[in-house]
């Protein structure tokens, strides 16, 4: 289940990277905002479906705003990507603490009656678990179709490979980048909703903690490559569950980073090879 949520979050993160070459350190806040949007809407309407839609919408709008107000402005000035990376870290501070002002720093509970667990194969499942896994699979399938079978997906891949080349061949790279961030935001916002559902409580720094694992999974799989990222996420997610991450959550992250360190170190790309892996598969 961690694997399912992780793969949604990681694919969204990698899509953001693919079209801008920016590793968005405020990605976790998209999940957090999605979770708060879901909570607020759920309290007002009582509908989980409305909450899910609100989470995705809030995530999409936030990602679009991040791209338009910060990332794209730097890119237009030809700022080095490392600088934009640092700026997104500043942005993460701002958003997290705006949420503290609005909702307080304390944990809020978000529990949905999940019904009696039932047995399926070797595992025990609840309705929420099933909902998470089925929806993650469905979203992944839709993303796959969009990326590999639509005109927009083709443009997205072109922009991720070479923005300038895409531009001269008549693709409006700016629109494609904005739309990709919006799409990634929808997915990440929804991931925030199901993460909140599965954990049961959250606070303004909840997304950032999960983002660190997301980052690990995305980089281990292959930053900027949607499907390798997904594989990385599933491996990291399953590994975390087997390590008994639920018992001592504190070691979870340390373990995830240990996986990442091994992956990065056994695949050195040579001292003078540009560390950017921009090709989108």
């Amino acid at each position: 289940m961690t694997a399912a949520i992780l793969s949604l979050s990681a694919v969204a993160f990698t899509l953001e990277y693919a079209v801008t070459n920016v590793a968005n350190l405020s990605h976790g806040e998209i999940l957090t905002v999605g979770a708060y949007a879901a909570l607020v809407v759920h309290q007002r309407t009582g509908s989980a479906l409305a909450a899910a839609l609100a989470a995705a919408a809030a995530g999409g709008l936030l990602a679009l705003a991040m791209h338009a107000a910060v990332v794209d402005r730097f890119i237009r000035r030809g700022t080095p990507t490392l600088v934009i990376f640092i700026a997104t870290l500043g942005l993460s501070f701002v958003i997290q603490n705006l949420l503290v002002i609005r909702f307080g720093a304390a944990n809020v509970a978000y529990t949905i009656p999940s019904g009696a667990p039932f047995e399926l194969g070797p595992f025990l499942w609840t309705a929420v678990d099933l909902e998470i896994i089925v929806s993650a699979l469905a979203i992944t399938a839709v993303l796959y179709l969009i990326i590999s079978h639509t005109k927009f997906g083709k443009a997205l891949r072109a922009v991720s490979q070479n923005r300038e080349l895409a531009r001269v061949s008549g693709i409006n790279a700016d629109v494609v980048a904005s739309a990709t961030w919006f799409l990634a935001g929808l997915v990440a916002g929804y991931a925030g909703f199901i993460l909140a559902e599965s954990v049961g409580t959250f606070n303004p720094s909840f997304g950032f903690g999960f983002f660190l694992i997301t980052l690990t999974a995305a980089v281990a799989g292959g930053l900027g490559r949607a499907f390798s990222t997904m594989v990385g996420a599933i491996i990291v997610g399953i590994a975390l569950e087997f390590v008994g991450g639920y018992v001592s959550a504190g070691y979870n992250l340390a373990f995830a980073f240990a996986i990442l360190a091994v992956v990065i170190l056994v695949r050195p790309r040579g001292l003078f090879v540009n560390a950017r892996r921009s090709v989108f598969e």
Binding site: G90, S92, F93, L98, A105
Partner: peptide, 26 residues
């Protein structure tokens, strides 16, 4: 009624300063 606001303002200002300086006066 809103404890912690002032504490939260600090990182907001610092985060915003980071973004704005990188953008306008690196």
């Amino acid at each position: 009624g809103h404890p912690g606001i002032v504490l939260a303002l600090r990182p907001i200002v610092i985060g915003a300063a980071l973004v704005l300086f990188l953008r306008f006066r690196p």
